[in-house]
Design a protein around this nucleic acid. Structure first.
Lengths: 149, 149
DNA sequence: CGTTAATGTAATCACGAATGTTACAAATAT
DNA sequence: ATATTTGTAACATTCGTGATTACATTAACG
């Protein structure tokens, strides 16, 4: 399985917004933290806006901030906001409809995929953005960051 | 999220082998059902062989068959056999290490991803290849396949 | 107002991963 | 031996994604 990086980037962006706790953060600042282009960030923010996870304002001195507290945003929502298209993909070419298995397999796979996706989202929903922020803080305050690994 | 098609193809291939119940099936036959090239199938079969899900023999009149009964193969195993590399991907470029969030986010994400992957595989493990075969049969024997939906 | 700072968005490029294809060596049944 | 089939290398093709540039739009602030 290969996911797009959008989910990872989205969590990163939201973690920065949580870290900045209410201050407006520009797409350029976010881009420097993620190490990418501001336009990529803005595209991502559009999806997060639609899902009502962030609020964005144009104009001097603004940018984006969380629209709820970090404790009330879970990663299941983030996943849905950002990976709306089908998570599992089917082969490009349609299977051979003359073969009984080829004719029916996609229906069967749809069921399997649907269930797996629900399980995935449910697990993600158990972690909130506040949990992520806590992990970040713990990692930052670790005494030795110079170990060999 | 976008997965490769390998998992879908693998389930399709295994379903055909289950359908053929013990007979040797050639990569060419499988390729016709999946509607792809035999070499693609053979590459997939290599992974399934390593995972001890199928047995393959060279030579005239052979091919591949399941190495266990369909009821004793679950889709979690198939997923692991075929999607061995990291399911969730991180951005290509490393985040800005000077930013506290950028410095720590990957550790946090690794935990989140690990848990989500386990949940995904556990859900897949609840379905066996025999279940898939049953779904295929049910779909084939449905009286009306001509409905508008 | 006009200036400045920011987002929204279209168009296009670049890159990487996956699949598709061809070709041929190696193995095995008959 | 011959025919059949897999294993595998090498290369082409396709496709999705991220990166980049450019510019219109919006909004604060003097």
């Amino acid at each position: 399985m290969r996911t797009s990086c959008r989910f990872a980037m989205a969590v990163h962006v939201l973690a920065v917004l949580a870290y900045k706790d209410g201050d407006g953060v520009t797409s350029e600042f976010l881009a420097r933290s993620v190490n990418t282009n501001p336009v990529v960030i803005r595209r991502l923010l559009l999806a997060l806006q639609e899902a009502r996870l962030v609020e964005t304002r144009k104009g001097a001195g603004f940018g984006s901030r969380l629209s709820r507290s970090a404790a009330r945003i879970n990663l299941g929502e983030v996943f849905r906001a950002v990976e709306q298209d089908e998570a599992f993909c089917l082969p490009r070419k349609k299977p051979n409809q003359a073969c009984p298995v080829g004719h029916c397999i996609q229906t069967a796979l749809a069921q399997v995929f649907g269930s797996a996706l629900r399980a995935l989202e449910q697990d993600l929903a158990r972690t909130t953005l506040a949990d992520v922020l806590k992990m970040v803080h713990e990692c930052c305050h670790e005494p030795s960051t110079t170990g060999k690994a």
